[in-house]
Structure formats: C-alpha cells, structure tokens
Amino acid sequence: MSSPSLTRKFWGTEFVSPVMLASGTSGFGEELFKLGCLTGAGAVVSKAVTMKPRSGNPPPRLLETPFGLLNSIGLANPGARYVLENILPAVSNLPCPLVINVAGESVQEFADVVSVLKESGVHIGYEINVSCPNVAEGGAAFGVDPEVVFRVSEAVSQVADRPFSVKLTPNGGDMVQAAVAAQQGGASAVTVCNTFLGMMIDWKTGKSVIKRKVAGYTSPALLPLVVARVWQVSNAVSVPVISSGGVSCGQDVLQLLAAGAEMVQVGTRLMRRPCAAGELLDEMKKLTGEQ
C-alpha cells in the first residue's frame, strides 16, 4: 500500500493537511485560533452566511442522541454585509485558509451573498450549501434536484472570482447526479455531504423535541454512509471531492482519502476535541509513518 501524502495543493492553495473544519462547528475560526486549535487544520469552513441576518431557530437547537447529535441551528448568522465588514477583517490573520459556507432561500441569493463577500480578500473560496430549503420554489432542498443544483452552481460561477465547492445533501435525490450537475454548472469541488435528516420524539408527549421537527443528524456512526457516497461521487466527477461526516480518528480520515476524498472535514468531533485537527494529523502521521 502506498502511504498518501498529507499535504494538499489545489484551488491554487497549499494546505498543510487534508483536515478541514466543517461548517457550523468552528465559527469563523477565531475562537479556535485563540485556543491554539488550528494547528494541523488544512482549512476552516465558516458557518453559513445568508444575505440578511438570521437569528436562528428556537431552542433547543441541539439534542444529543445515544450515538450522535441532532442540530437545528437555523443558519443563525449576522448577514453577508456584517460578515464582510466586521467578521472577515477580524479573521484575516488565521494560520490556515478560510472557506465561506453560503446558504440561501433562492438560486439568486447564493449569487448575491458571493457578490457581497467577494469584496474581501480574506477567504480563498466558497462552499455552497444546497441542503437548505428552496423557499422561493416550493421549499424542497435545492440539492435534491440535479437541475436546480446546476442552476445554483451556474449562478455562483457567474459571479464568483474564486473557487467554490457545492455541498450536497444525502436527503433525497441522486447525489451522484447532483455532483455531476454541480461540476457542469462550474463548481470547482463538491462536498459530500451535509447532515442526515433525523428526529427524536418524546414518547410522553408524542412531539418532536426539536421545535422544527426534523433536524440534521451527525455521528461517527455515519462513517460508512459517507465513505460509500464519497466513493460513488469521486468515480463520477473530475473535480476534487471534499468529504464531510463521520470522522472521529486519524484512521477515518485515511479511509476517506482512500475512498477518493481530496480533503476531509471534521465537525461533531470538535465538540469533544476543539484541537481535533492537530490530533487527527498526528494520528495519521503515526499510521502512515510520515514525519
């Protein structure tokens, strides 16, 4: 077996490691930087940014399950303008590249957010979150329909002055087709994949504990589901595949790289280990014998 190199170069950027910190689990990187936890991080992906500020969903926004975590944050963020003027300048000194996660309620909103944020030179690219509901066209997630994914990708590529990945959804639709559509629309990577729909019901009341009923489920137990999807998608597209989901140790990262991922995101594990990036990289180096 050949041991994979652990540095990366694509999108015209060099990454010290294949580990990316997943959207929504590391803010804009500032807090983890202050904690000294960005060592070993190839890149940070910001929390979702929308055009207008969003205060987010009513609590409880998190629910721990026996083997994972349900989240219903509701894309809480201060809006693209505020991010441009107040947050990005404050994170211009991060020790690793920053990618901005973009969400929207219409195809146009994704392009609008990118148009606002491109005034900043702080971030290297975008991750387009097509798992959110397409409110303008019926409310189903953009990502379930390859034709809509194509339109989002095309709209973003018309305004983006730097690379972007389209983060796909596992909740309905054919992810391989969606990935191909994203690439055809101009995406320079695809992220596989966003959270899995989940729900926990209090049997005494018969009601979902999370007010918005369904939520996003993440868990180390999702590893094989993500490995399968990364493997399928990477066989179908030529752009880099970024995996997201299921990672809790260095071996998981190596497995996802073997499945075809170029970069591997870690999310929920950061709740236990804010310095997970460095820990994962050390574990990988030990396993592969790389110094």
């Binding site: 929504g24 689990t25 590391s26 803010g27 807090e31 983890l32 904690l35 929390k47 205060s55 987010g56 009513p58 609590p59 409880p60 926004r61 998190l62 629910l63 721990e64 975590l69 989240n71 944050i73 809480a76 950061l270 709740m271 804010p274």
Partner: peptide
C-alpha cells in the same frame, strides 16, 4: 443553563431567547 455543543462560542447551539427578540 442551556444544551451545549461546544461551550466556546462556535456552534450557536446554546442560544437563549432575550427580551426584545433574538438570542
């Protein structure tokens, strides 16, 4: 008290409703 993900400000999971709206 609130259900927490991180505890260090990155996940937005622990938001508490405040007077006048928002969290």
């Amino acid at each position: 008290e609130s259900r927490m993900g991180c505890g260090w400000g990155v996940c937005d999971g622990c938001s508490i409703p405040v007077s006048g709206g928002g969290y």
